Simulated assay, not measured.
Amino acid sequence: MGARIAAVDYYLPEAVLSNEDLSREFPEWSVEKISGKTGIDRRHISGPDEFSSDLAIAAARRLFERDGIDPQSIDYVILCTQSPDYYLPSTACIVQDALGIPTSAGATDITLGCSGYIYALGLAKGLIESGQAAKVLVVTADTYTKFINPADKSVRTIFGDGAAATLVTADGSDTSLTAMTYGTDGSGGKSLIVPNGGLRAGAALQPKADTAVRELVASGYDLYMDGPDIFNFTLRVVPETVEEILAKAQLEQNDIDLFVFHQANAFMLEHLRKKLKVPAEKFFVSLAESGNTVSSTIPIALADAERQGALVPGMRVMLLGFGVGLSWGGLVATW
């Protein structure tokens, strides 16, 4: 008995931050410059009283309603977030209760960002194939914009908030989710960090994240990203991981019908596509209307690809996430 992705949907907050809005705040960056650098036109921003659990609940309800899924049938919840509502209780417990999922279900948070969807799918696959669960709800939800210093235009142009819900169920074959591949390099943790608001001062890990060094007025969390370091890491790790996934799956690159990678920004994705020599029609990009939603970019792109007819049943799709941690992971799914 294997595991498969049975359904996927997502939710974005109502409030929108457009390139026009950003250009008014930062006149030195035109609308065209922002769009050209990022491939993003708009980002959805969580409200002051809207948090990761709210987005997660909305995404799951949308999935349940669209696909006629009974919450009582869910026997495990995996919630991936790096912006939990509280240190404790876990956000997964809040979501389980709000959705009316049985108290007999397991529910746990995992703390991963850009690679988190892959890791959550791997855990769901393990639960199902070991007989511990039959229907796993995988939810990704992040509100990174709450971490961003308002004066830091370098990250305000990139990140948006959102959540996605995926139902992973038991399958009659073992070929639906295959070639699970993971990687971790914690020495790069200093490249993308929220230095403030935790129990330890972030300057101990990354001195450059200190707001005084960045000439910013501290605003609470003050997310810091070393863009060039993340970019170089991605260009090095992603091609190696693609080869590793293909080797595990015993496939050639031409056997993959669609590539859906973490939607970091259009500039980086185009570099990767060219480096890998993947035809544009087989490389799905979907971030213009949502931005980089961290753990939710891949499931949002999958849902968009399905709606646009770019992803249809029977296709082999390679999923690959990479980023904060540093962490990466990928797999091949039969849709």
Rank of each mutant, 00 (worst) to 15 (best):
A6Y: 04
A6I: 01
Y11V: 00
Y11L: 02
E14C: 01
N19S: 05
E20M: 13
E25I: 05
E25G: 08
E25Y: 11
E32F: 09
G39V: 07
R42Y: 03
R42I: 05
R42F: 03
R43W: 05
R43C: 00
S46W: 03
D49N: 14
S53Y: 01
A58E: 12
L63A: 12
E65H: 14
R66V: 15
R66G: 08
P71S: 11
Q72E: 14
I74M: 10
Y76A: 14
V77W: 01
I78N: 12
S83P: 05
Y87D: 09
T91F: 10
A98Y: 12
I101T: 01
I110M: 07
C114Y: 14
G116S: 13
Y119S: 09
Y119G: 08
A124L: 08
G126T: 01
I128H: 01
E129S: 03
Q132C: 07
A141V: 11
Y144D: 00
A151G: 01
K153W: 00
R156W: 01
T157G: 00
F159D: 05
G162W: 02
A163W: 04
A164Y: 09
A164F: 12
A165W: 07
A165P: 03
T175C: 07
A179H: 09
T181V: 06
T181R: 06
G183S: 11
G188S: 02
G189T: 00
G189H: 02
S191Y: 15
S191W: 14
V194E: 03
N196Q: 13
G202D: 11
Q206L: 09
K208P: 02
T211L: 02
V213C: 07
R214C: 11
V217D: 12
A218T: 00
A218R: 03
M225P: 11
T241W: 02
T241G: 05
V242Q: 04
V242K: 03
E244F: 01
Q250P: 05
Q250T: 15
F261D: 07
A266F: 15
L269F: 03
L269A: 10
E270D: 15
R273C: 07
L276G: 05
P279R: 08
E281S: 10
L287M: 15
S290Y: 05
N292T: 07
G314M: 09
R316E: 04
M318I: 04
F322T: 09
L331N: 10
